[in-house]
Amino acid sequence: MEFHERLCYLMDNRGIRNSDLWRKTGKHPATISNYRTGKTLPDTTFYFELIKSIPDMNGHWLLFGTGEPFLPNNQKKVNKSTDSVTVSGTENAVTSNEAIQEKISVLEKQVNAIVTGFQEVKEMTKIDLGKNKVYSYSEVVTESKNYAA
């Protein structure tokens, strides 16, 4: 199951509309629709806002597709007078999501280091090519004949 399919499953299971996520995440409903169809992938901000708005969601499942969609042993307590929902057992989810965020940060740094390395190699290549004459095949053949004569 791809990310967009998991997002659709989650939204359908909880009865969440694009406009609901717009209010919670700040992403325009058309952008959320693009996430749901798989046209684009969301950024990490959307992902973390989604986790905040659905605290019993398994963030690892949403991101990687492993495990169950919702965290086990969560008990919701709904206060009817304020319509607030309290979810117990989400401490591990927060820790897990913080660990994922930390891993993403490390990966971003590694990618940036690789990109910088490629840029440096590219610049070094330009410098080396500038110092040495680059011959075409016809020039090499012509110079070889001149030496032979």
Rank of each mutant, 00 (worst) to 15 (best):
N97Q: 09
E143M: 13
I127R: 05
K133F: 14
N97A: 09
V140P: 04
L21P: 02
R23C: 04
A113I: 10
S88A: 03
K126M: 08
V87S: 05
S96R: 05
Y47T: 10
D83A: 14
D12K: 15
V121T: 12
S33R: 02
T40W: 03
D12A: 14
P69R: 03
D128G: 03
P42W: 06
R14D: 00
V111N: 06
L63P: 03
K80E: 11
N79R: 06
E98Q: 12
L62K: 04
E120R: 13
V134H: 07
K131Q: 07
T66S: 12
R17E: 15
Y9D: 01
T25L: 05
N132T: 11
N73S: 12
A99G: 15
P29K: 01
Q75R: 15
E120N: 13
K24C: 05
S53R: 07
E139N: 07
T95I: 12
D128P: 01
C8Y: 01
S81K: 10
V78N: 02
L107C: 10
G67R: 00
G89T: 04
F46I: 08
T45M: 12
G38Y: 02
S136Y: 08
I127V: 12
E102V: 14
T142R: 13
E49H: 13
V85L: 12
Y135H: 12
I127W: 07
G89R: 03
K103F: 12
L62W: 04
S136T: 15
H60C: 14
G117V: 08
V115I: 14
V140C: 06
E102S: 14
P42G: 02
T66P: 01
D12L: 05
R23F: 04
I54H: 03
Y9I: 04
G65D: 07
T66Y: 07
T90L: 03
V121G: 05
V87P: 04
P55H: 04
